[in-house]
Structure formats: structure tokens, C-alpha cells
Design a protein around this nucleic acid. Structure first.
Length: 496
RNA sequence: GGUCCUUUGGCCGAGUGGCUAGGCAAAGCUCUGCAAAAGCUUCUACAGCGGUUCGAAUCCGCUAGGGACCUCCA
């Protein structure tokens, strides 16, 4: 069995073979930190986090590079453009690094909430200006870029004559060259399809660096090429990002790197699909975004309540990363409930005694269970089919609960199968899917108090003092803690 | 306008040509002091039309709806 990855470049599932046996280099386009991340941004980070985790599970040493774009046009939403004008005092003026800092912190905080593994390297565009300039120089000397009025453009027409520009995104070069759209700096370009490698900075532009072509700032695409090459090499294994980056961003990355390094940069291109809202892509330009802080706080007209980051993670993993995923409050509520049920079953599973049963009394059940468990690996190997794993886990959940309640008697399953269940669930649910319980960190003092209340309630029930018993239950419920009465008179609790 | 994708039961979503995806909601039952939880059961759909095939949600064509990219975008 081997890992298969859908490669956007070939449009087929391919068996994954790393360049260096045992090692994987993976680059994922990170955020532009000029604003807050929204729900749509969460998808690539969670999806590729799972890819990263699974590759590690398979035994690879992964160098996971995810950049931060902190160079370019920096304006804070709602802030007057006058802020940029130089006549203002320094402290009154927009300081781009202030925004970069603010939104980087917020982004890192959100990633932590989602339990996303930190990348091995998180390079910033501003920290790699020199590398970008060097790369542009190489492209110019190779004859595939030209300077005009302090800006440098990539010569797409020339590139397309010798290489396949548009293959990744399924673009037809003739169409691109004929585009009639008016763009900034269009008159400087030889062809409409040319893209900027370096832009001369107009006087009011705050972010600027010296370059062989005058003061300016790097173009949109060059940072990823420069940083990926620097940390992963001229050709690396996996490049990930949102589908909307395929063109022109990734297409241009291929062109830049191919000219600069004389070799195609990426073996496997992976693209996650969009999160939609009422069937429409969630995006700034559509004015339909829900920020992550709003998701977590519930402070948004479309949300009926706050949603825990793990609910969102689960929601995202319930669909395949290459399908669109339609957001709605209702869908999220369903995910929350489902995830709670699954997680409670998981906790029950871990507390089940293994016993000493060499053979299963119910071989059919045992066989079914083993099949479901072994499929976890198959599903992940098949282009990271996380929804199928979750489906199998939900098949198993009632069995776990029945074991606990004695509806399935002890010894029905062999000890080895029970052990395998525990292991597979722990590995896949926690290590690979990266899910966590929603009850927060353990607090012995708090839990001790709940246990005390439960003990009192048990006594009350034994004495048929239902007034006390209900009082404890209902008042705890008001505080957000529910108590479950179980078959054997035991009580368990959890947060709502 | 160009390129491409998509249309699955009340909702969200998997689906490799033949075998129950799964979740949520809903209904019934069991358990139960009540409630909840849990278990069992029911709800069996693939936009429409035509074609290929022994057999299609799955392949092909047409029609209709929705969407993405072509401009910053995860």
C-alpha cells in the first residue's frame, strides 16, 4: 500500500515518491498578514496540517515551509488613505510592520486554537528581499524578464514559446495574451500576460527597498519561488495552496523557477477547494467572510452561538479537501454535535479494560471491526480521504458504547482487537487528524468538585431525594455542565 | 466572452460501473423517578432527457441550474 496524491498538474492521482528517500519537502502558501484570517483561510492550513501529520506518521522527515506574506500593499481596512501621506508625524502614520505584527500574532493564535502543527520554517517575504532580487537578476540575464521605468516584468510570451505556460491552471496562452482587461502598469508591459517581478515604488508607497532597478518592492509571485528554492531546493516534493492561487500565482511560480533554476520546481501540486457560503466562495471581494475571531466568539449575524475551533476543524475534515464545502450555521451545529459524540466515544474507548481474551466470541463483529480499522490507513493513502475515516469511526462508536454499557458482553472481542482499536483511534484521531477534546485543560481542583457533586447526587438518588438530585443536575446544566445517568447508576459529565 | 468544475434524501456531506457511506434533523422502541445520554429500528436519494452496458449516482452527449478562475484572493 502506498500513498497516492492527486496532482493538480497532471490532474490524476499519482503514487507519491519523494525525491530524497525518507524526506519530504513541502511548501504551502501562507497568509498575507494585512488583515484577519477568516474561515476560508482555515481550510488550507488545516488540510495541509493533516498532510504534514500523515507524512510524519508514514515515517518521513518533513520540512514544512509555510510563508508569511508581509510585503506589498499594506493598508488597514477602514483606515484613511491619508495615513500614508508623508506629511504626517511618524507615530501618526501607518506603520506597516505594526499591522504585520498584529495580524501575524492573531494568525499564530488561530493556528494554535486549531491545533495546527507549526511549520518547520516560516519565512517572511520582507526577510528575503535579497534572495528575490538575486532571482530576478537571474531571470533577466536568462533573457526572460525586462526592466521598464524601474519595474521588472516577466516575459510570458517568450516563456510560452519554449515552455508550457498555463499547464497547471489549464490556461490557453493565446487567450491570456489577448485579454483586454486594463491593469495597473499595463502600458509598461510588452504583453498583457506579463507579470511583475519587481515594482517601482511610487512616492507614497511606504514599503520600499533598494534594488538594481531603483526603489521598489517585489512582485506578488517571486517571494514563494525564492523562499521555496532557498529552503527546499530547486525541485521539491509538494507545493500546496488554495485552488484560487493556481492562476496566476502558482503558474507564475513555475515559470520563474523554471527559468531561474532550469528545472520545474514542484513534483506534486496540491490544491484545496474553497469554503462557500450560500454556494458562493467566501472571500473579501464578495463581502461574505466570517473571521475566525467571530467564529470563536459567535459574534456574527449568521452565527447562533460560538463555535469551538475543534468543531471547525472537524467540520473541515468531514469533507474532502478537494471538494467545495458549504458553510452554514446549521451545518456547523451538526458538526459540533457529531464531534462531541465521537469524542466521548473515544474517551470511553480509552477507559475500557482490555481483559485477557485470546479469541473473539463474535468473529463476525471482530472481522467487521478489523476491516474498519485497517481502512483508516487505506483511506489516508487515497489522497487523504479524511471523511471516510470519520465515517468508519462513527460505525465503531456504537460498538464502543455498547461495550461500555455491557450490551456487548466482555470477551465478545479479542483483547488484541480492542488494543488495536485504542491505538488506531488515538493515532488517527489525535495524531493525524489533529483533533482534541473540547473540555480544555485538566483542572484537578475543578474536577474534584464535580466529582463531589456527583457523589452527593448519587446519595440523593439512592434515598429517592429527587429534589436534591435534580437541583444538582439542573444547576450544573445552567453552568454549562451536563450530567449523564448511566445504566449501572454511574454518572459522567461534560461541558455543553 | 474564454477555460474549467459542479448538481446526491429535510440539511451537510462520502462515493472506485454491480454490494447500507457517514453525520445532523425527524419518527418509533428499549433503558429510565423525570430529563438527557446510550442502544436498536425507520426515513434508501442521486437535476432533466437521451445514449453506451447484462448492469450507471458513477462513462458519453444534450438541456437546465449553481460555482470557480481569467484582477488581490486560501
Amino acid at each position: 500500500m502506498s500513498l497516492k496524491i492527486y496532482n493538480s498538474f497532471s490532474r490524476t492521482k499519482e503514487t507519491f515518491v519523494p525525491i530524497t528517500p525518507g524526506y519530504v519537502g513541502m511548501y504551502v502558501c501562507g497568509p498575507t498578514v494585512s488583515g484577519e484570517s477568516h474561515l476560508g483561510h482555515a481550510r488550507p492550513y488545516i488540510s495541509f496540517d493533516v498532510v504534514n501529520r500523515y507524512l510524519k506518521y508514514l515515517g518521513y522527515r518533513v520540512r514544512y515551509v509555510r510563508n508569511i506574506t508581509d510585503a506589498g500593499h499594506f493598508e488597514e481596512e477602514g483606515r484613511e488613505s491619508e495615513d500614508k501621506v508623508s506629511k504626517k508625524a511618524l507615530l501618526e502614520k501607518l506603520e506597516p510592520m505594526e499591522l504585520v505584527q498584529k495580524y501575524s500574532n492573531l494568525y499564530h493564535w488561530a493556528m494554535k486554537q486549531f491545533n495546527c502543527t507549526e511549520p518547520s520554517i516560516e519565512p517572511t517575504a520582507t526577510g528575503h528581499i535579497i534572495e528575490q532580487i538575486v532571482m530576478i537578476e537571474k531571470i533577466i540575464s536568462a533573457g526572460y524578464a525586462y526592466e521598464k521605468n524601474g519595474s521588472v516584468y516577466f516575459d510570458v510570451k517568450k516563456y510560452a514559446a519554449n515552455y508550457d505556460y498555463g499547464k497547471l491552471s489549464g490556461r490557453i496562452i493565446e487567450d491570456l495574451l489577448e485579454t483586454t482587461r486594463e491593469l495597473d502598469g499595463q502600458e509598461e508591459k510588452r504583453d498583457r500576460a506579463d507579470f511583475a517581478l519587481w515594482k517601482a515604488a511610487p512616492p507614497e508607497h511606504i514599503m520600499r527597498w533598494k534594488s538594481p532597478w531603483g526603489e521598489g518592492f517585489p512582485g506578488w509571485h517571486i517571494e514563494c519561488s525564492a523562499m521555496a528554492t532557498k529552503y527546499l531546493g530547486e525541485t521539491f516534493d509538494i507545493h500546496g495552496g488554495g485552488m484560487d492561487l493556481q492562476f496566476p500565482h502558482h503558474e507564475s511560480e513555475i515559470a520563474q523557477s523554471t527559468i531561474c533554476n532550469k528545472v520545474a520546481p514542484v513534483n506534486y501540486w496540491m490544491h484545496n477547494n474553497m469554503i462557500t457560503i450560500n454556494g458562493r466562495k467566501m472571500g473579501k471581494s464578495y463581502n461574505n467572510v466570517i473571521k475566525l475571531t467571530e467564529m470563536f466568539s459567535g459574534n456574527h449575524p449568521l452565527l447562533s452561538q460560538p463555535f469551538h475551533p475543534m468543531t471547525i476543524r472537524f467540520f473541515i475534515l468531514q469533507s474532502h479537501y478537494r471538494s467545495t464545502l458549504d458553510f452554514s450555521n446549521e451545518a456547523l451545529l451538526a458538526s459540533e454535535k457529531a464531534f462531541k459524540r465521537l469524542w466521548e466515544a473515544y474517551e470511553v474507548l480509552q477507559s475500557l479494560p482490555i481483559g485477557a481474551h485470546e479469541d473473539a466470541k463474535d468473529e463476525q463483529l471482530e472481522a467487521k471491526l478489523l476491516k474498519w480499522l485497517l481502512e483508516f490507513d487505506e483511506f489516508m493513502d487515497d489522497d487523504f480521504s479524511t471523511p471516510k475515516i470519520l465515517a468508519n469511526m462513527f460505525e465503531i462508536a456504537p460498538i464502543i458504547n455498547s461495550l461500555k454499557d455491557g450490551l456487548i458482553p466482555e470477551g465478545t472481542l479479542s483483547s488484541s482487537t480492542l488494543l488495536l482499536m485504542k491505538q488506531k483511534f488515538a493515532i488517527f484521531l489525535e495524531d493525524i487528524l489533529g483533533l482534541q477534546g473540547m473540555n480544555g485543560p485538566k483542572n484537578a481542583q475543578f474536577e474534584g468538585m464535580i466529582d463531589l457533586l456527583i457523589a452527593i447526587r448519587k446519595d440523593a438518588k439512592a434515598k429517592k431525594d429527587f429534589a436534591t438530585s435534580d437541583r444538582i443536575r439542573l444547576q450544573l446544566l445552567e453552568l454549562g455542565i451536563h450530567i449523564n445517568d448511566e445504566k449501572d447508576g454511574n454518572m459522567s459529565w461534560g461541558r455543553i
